[in-house]
C-alpha cells in the first residue's frame, strides 16, 4: 500500500492511501509499529487519503495505541471520512483515540 511519511517538527505524520484491509494491514503494521519501535512518541495518522478500513486496519491502530501508551506517547488521528468515522464510532474507538478534523490540529495535539 502507499504510505506517505512526513516529519512536522517532532511529530511523525503517516498518511496511508486507498484501502486498509486484511491485504494491506500487515504492511501498515510493519511501518507504524516499526516507527514506534524506533522510539517515536509523537505521531499523527492522516486518514485524508484513506477510502476504506476493516477490522484488520483497526487492529493495527489499537496495537499502536497500546504501544504508545507504554512509552507515554501520543497518537492522534485526523481527516477521517464520514463512513470511516462511523466505523470508529461503532468500534468504541472515539473514546480511545483523539480525532482532529485536520492535520494542523492533529500535529498540534500530538506535539503538546
Amino acid at each position: 500500500m502507499d504510505i506517505l511519511q512526513q516529519e512536522e517538527g517532532d511529530v511523525l505524520v503517516l498518511s496511508p492511501g486507498g484501502r486498509l484491509d486484511g491485504t494491506t494491514a500487515p504492511e501498515f503494521e510493519t511501518v507504524l509499529l516499526g516507527r514506534i519501535g524506533e522510539g517515536r512518541t509523537r505521531a499523527v495518522i492522516d486518514f485524508g487519503r484513506l477510502d476504506y478500513i476493516s477490522s484488520a486496519g483497526l487492529r493495527v491502530l489499537l496495537m499502536a495505541a497500546k504501544r504508545m501508551r507504554q512509552t507515554d506517547g501520543r497518537l492522534v488521528l485526523c481527516a477521517v471520512k464520514a463512513h470511516i468515522l462511523e466505523v470508529f464510532e461503532i468500534s468504541g474507538f472515539l473514546s480511545i483515540f483523539t480525532v482532529e478534523t485536520n492535520r494542523d490540529a492533529a500535529v498540534a495535539a500530538a506535539a503538546a
Binding site: S55, R59, L62, M63, R69, G92, S95, I96
Partner: peptide, 12 residues
C-alpha cells in the same frame, strides 16, 4: 468501553 490497556485486539 474498555480502556486502551484492557481493550482486546480482535472480535470487531
Amino acid at each position: 468501553d474498555a480502556s486502551i490497556d484492557d481493550r482486546a485486539i480482535g472480535g470487531l
